[in-house]
Design a protein around this nucleic acid. Sequence first.
DNA 1: CGGGATCCCTCTTGATACTG
DNA 2: CAGTATCAAGAGGGATCCCG
Lengths: 134, 134
Amino acid sequence: MTPSTSADNGALLREVLARIGDKWSVIVICRLDGQPRRFNELRRLTEGITQRMLSATLRHLERDGLVRRTVYATVPPQVEYALTERGHSLHAILYRLVDWTDDHLAGIQASRAAYDTAHATDPAPPAVSMGDAR
Amino acid sequence: MTPSTSADNGALLREVLARIGDKWSVIVICRLDGQPRRFNELRRLTEGITQRMLSATLRHLERDGLVRRTVYATVPPQVEYALTERGHSLHAILYRLVDWTDDHLAGIQASRAAYDTAHATDPAPPAVSMGDAR
DNA sequence: CGGGATCCCTCTTGATACTG
DNA sequence: CAGTATCAAGAGGGATCCCG
């Protein structure tokens, strides 16, 4: 059914996942949902991000037309970032993923624990819970 | 409403993206959709992957309960990998992302080209097209 | 056939400092 | 305020060899 969007196209899928799969893109997109933000405002909202990473992420998103950057030539330079229509549509999809995670997080954690227990070769209880990846 | 799935939860979202955002997980999930596969079969289907990466990816997916590994004690050892229900449900979401990419890829490439042209500081035409990231 | 163990290298990220 | 430049570290990924 619906062969047009064949899930077999690994390259294409990796394309988009490579884009949003980096450490900050998706978070920034979420922070931008609803209202435009200024650079340092965004930085404050996104705990843990460095200027370097925020700058790079925003430039990246801007290049892909997901975020629009507006510079106001005010006395203190002011730059505003906002989601474009394309950015909003992506955010809507991302939302599904959050939904899915919400529904399956507990189960995943349980699977993880079970797996770790079953594969414990010796007295070395990992107990890392989620968040060890990447 | 449905405040439970607040898109503001960056940590949660990063959780799942870190899982599926690696280089091969999503491709393997797609390859597993529809029918179970054996290791080398999967390897042949997933062009470019090494045994090491396929092995690691499968173990990872298995740990999260997205893939079920079945060992048959036949004369030549045979191992079969299949998507679990959870794996299938994730694949359904991933599918949306492919859909989205399908719809927006051309636009993104156009944005990229425009951005690169506008920001060309000097005679150094990138023309990298898609696929330079990561 | 189905992996595990190693070596190594690149790319991403982070810390820090400096600029318009 | 809104970034850029430089440097160092670390994880992810590839190549290769070996084993049950």
